[in-house]
Every structure is written in structure tokens, then in C-alpha cells.
Computed example of a mutant assay.
Amino acid sequence: MRTGSLLGVIDLTGSPESVALAREYVRRKLGADHPALDDVTILTSEVVTNATVHSNSRNGGRITVAIAE
């Protein structure tokens, strides 16, 4: 089994503003030439949005985004 390397981790507040921050973070970490950049950006947006809407993070909690390649 191949394991990826951790590119970074960011902790965000459970707020709608964090969705844009997560997208920006992923795009910066992967770089403009990464072949899956658009797909990963969209998936990150969906997951962080769901976390801010449907989890206890929306009540002052935290969301952690980790990205590996």
C-alpha cells in the first residue's frame, strides 16, 4: 500500500467564512499545475460547508483540514 506525504494541516473556525479559507489553502498547497486541483478544491468546499452546517463546529468549534498527496 502506498502512503502519501502530508502537505499541511490547517485549523479553521466552524463558520461560513472558513469555506473560502479552506479552498484557498488547498489551492496554495497543491499548486496551480496539480492535475486534480479543481476536483480537490470542489470536494474541500463541499466537506467544509457540510462541517459548518451539520456538525457542532458551527457552535464555536473547529474544523481541521489536512491535505496529503
Score class of each variant (00 low, 15 high):
residue 13 T to H: 14
residue 27 R to I: 01
residue 65 V to S: 08
residue 10 I to T: 11
residue 45 S to I: 05
residue 21 L to S: 06
residue 20 A to F: 09
residue 53 V to I: 13
residue 50 N to D: 12
residue 23 R to F: 02
residue 53 V to K: 15
residue 22 A to G: 02
residue 56 N to V: 07
residue 66 A to H: 10
residue 15 S to P: 00
residue 30 L to E: 05
residue 44 T to H: 02
residue 45 S to Q: 12
residue 24 E to C: 00
residue 15 S to M: 10
residue 31 G to M: 00
residue 59 N to C: 11
residue 19 V to Q: 04
residue 64 T to K: 15
residue 25 Y to H: 06
residue 12 L to C: 10
residue 55 S to M: 10
residue 8 G to I: 01
residue 9 V to F: 14
residue 8 G to E: 03
residue 33 D to R: 03
residue 28 R to W: 01
residue 13 T to Q: 14
residue 57 S to N: 06
residue 13 T to P: 08
residue 60 G to I: 03
residue 24 E to S: 11
residue 2 R to E: 14
residue 63 I to W: 08
residue 26 V to Q: 01
residue 42 I to D: 13
residue 57 S to L: 06
residue 30 L to R: 01
residue 68 A to T: 06
residue 28 R to N: 07
residue 64 T to F: 11
residue 43 L to S: 10
residue 54 H to S: 15
residue 62 R to F: 11
residue 21 L to D: 03
residue 6 L to G: 07
residue 63 I to Q: 03
residue 34 H to K: 04
residue 51 A to R: 02
residue 48 V to C: 13
residue 42 I to G: 06
residue 55 S to F: 12
residue 63 I to S: 15
residue 36 A to L: 13
residue 51 A to K: 03
residue 29 K to E: 15
residue 57 S to C: 13
residue 4 G to K: 04
residue 61 G to V: 04
residue 50 N to G: 10
residue 28 R to Y: 05
residue 2 R to A: 14
residue 40 V to T: 07
residue 35 P to A: 04
residue 44 T to M: 00
residue 62 R to D: 13
residue 63 I to R: 02
residue 27 R to M: 03
residue 27 R to W: 01
residue 28 R to G: 01
residue 31 G to T: 00
residue 9 V to W: 08
residue 15 S to V: 06
residue 24 E to F: 02
residue 54 H to V: 06
residue 41 T to E: 14
residue 5 S to I: 00
residue 58 R to K: 13
residue 61 G to E: 09
residue 36 A to W: 05
residue 48 V to I: 10
residue 16 P to F: 07
